[in-house]
Every structure is written in C-alpha cells, then in structure tokens.
C-alpha cells in the first residue's frame, strides 16, 4: 500500500533549485531510506513531506505530494493536522528544557487534548514505544536535559509519537549518537515500522542497508534511483548509484 506519493516535486531557494522534479512512491509501514552526499536535497525532500519548508521565507515548492490520496500542498489543507499526522525527529536530540512529562505532553497540549486520562495513557504508551518507560516511570518530573543523548533522542521520538502520527520522518536521527546507541535506535525502528511508515534520511550507507526496505539515492537535487534496498545495494540500475554505494563517489 502506498502511503506517500510525490509527483513532479521541485523546490527552489530563491533562484537555486534544490530539488528537481522528484517522483516517488513510499510504501506504508516500511522503512524508506534516503541517501546521498551532503547538499543533495534529501533533507529538503524530507521537509516537504510535513511542509516544514513553509517556514523558510524564500523557499518555493512546486508539484504535488499526496498522503493517503490527499495533496498536502492544496490550499485547504489543515497544516496543523498534517503535521500531527506526519511526525518528525531531528538530527540532534532537541528536547525542550522541560520535564520528561511536559516534553511528551507538549504535542497534546497544542492540539488541545486536555483529558487527564488520555494524557496519562499517551504518556505511558509513547514512552513504552521507545522503551523508556521502565527506566523513567519514576522520574517523569525530571528535566529532560539531564538524560543521556540516546535517551533524549528516544524522548524526542516519543514526543512525536504522542500525537499519534501515521508517518515518521527522521532526519539523520543517529548522527549525534555513538555506535551502540545507534544500533539500539535502529532496533527500535524495526519495532516502530509495524505501526508507522518511516522515512529516514541518513548519511550512513550501512545504516540504510541495515534498516531500510527501500532506498532512494539523491544527487544534486535529483532522485537518481529508488527501489528495494536489496536491489539498490546489490544491483543498482544507475551507474551513479553504483559509484556512490561502492564508495567511488561522495
């Protein structure tokens, strides 16, 4: 089943074209990895999927992005609801300087979910989903910045899950973590894909090979190739993809 379908998507920053006519279909409840050298547009692409590029004044997006059949760039789209459905985890763990509990509940509060029963249920559920609940259940009032980087990143993930998204966008979520923490986050991603469609941008080709079902290779704003990870890494159709994954480029 297709969750996200992108048609003829281009992004301009002023006169610079950051993405050139991207077409892609992203499967539901699978992990799709986007790889490519720095500045190739993969993060820009990711930020088109929850319209975070709207925040950049000079960015201009052309084309269509359908999520469950609805073009999210249409004018009548409820941007806040879109961003609830499409959660995002950032490169560096960025918890608010608040307690663990307040971090998780922030998303609920902005969507005016005030029922204490729902709030508690979501708090437990999202912390359980990122496997933090057993460690942290007795210190929910603790400041989130006192946690380890890995715990912080899990907390950020839980914060995104608390508003019950369907899609998770991850922008190099492990780049600030050590290899052991990275391995544990990758395990967690396998767990999460049972429920969520995951799109991950990564610098790390091995990571893409390990975790993803599908891989897309971006180069200079173009999507060179998108297909099953196994195929991309063993029998890429495009010479440029091959050069990249074999380390001859980038």
């Amino acid at each position: 089943m297709i969750s996200i379908e992108v048609k003829n998507l281009s992004v301009f920053y002023g006169s610079f074209q950051a993405l050139k006519n991207i077409n892609i279909k992203i499967e539901r409840q699978k992990i799709s990895a986007l790889i490519g050298p720095s500045g190739c547009g993969k993060t820009t692409f990711l930020r088109c999927l929850n319209r975070m590029n709207d925040l950049i004044d000079e960015a201009r997006v052309v084309g269509e992005v359908f999520i469950d059949g609805l073009n999210i760039y249409e004018e009548k789209v409820d941007l806040l609801e879109l961003r609830r459905r499409v959660g995002m985890v950032f490169q560096r763990p960025n918890p608010f300087p608040l307690s663990i509990e307040d971090n998780i509940l922030y998303g609920l509060k902005v969507h005016r979910i005030n029922d204490p029963k729902i709030m508690e249920e979501r708090l437990i559920k999202s912390l359980e989903a990122v496997q933090l609940w057993p460690q942290l259940k007795n210190q929910l009032r603790k400041n989130a910045l006192t946690l380890s980087l890995e715990q912080q990143q899990r907390l950020c993930l839980a914060r995104a899950l608390a508003v019950e998204p369907e899609i998770l966008l991850m922008d190099e979520p492990c780049s600030a973590l050590d290899p052991i923490a990275t391995a544990r986050i990758e395990e967690l991603m396998f767990e999460l894909k049972k429920k969520y469609t995951i799109v991950i941008v990564t610098h790390n080709m091995q990571q893409a090979a390990r975790v993803s079902d599908f891989t897309g290779y971006f180069l200079l704003g173009e999507l060179i190739e998108f297909g099953e990870t196994h195929q991309i890494f063993t029998a890429p159709a495009d010479k440029r993809t091959e050069d990249y994954i074999t380390g001859r480029y980038g």
Binding site: N50, M52, L55, L79, L80, E81, L82, R83, R84, G87, M88, F90, R92, N94, F96, Y106, G107, V110, H111, C156, R159, A160, V163
Partner: peptide, 12 residues
C-alpha cells in the same frame, strides 16, 4: 530547534 519541534508537532 525549539521552534522547529513545536511546528513539527502541529503547533501554531
């Protein structure tokens, strides 16, 4: 980063 998180969660 704080602003981005808030927007990404659907905050106005």
């Amino acid at each position: 980063a704080y602003r981005e998180v808030s927007f990404s969660l659907g905050g106005t």
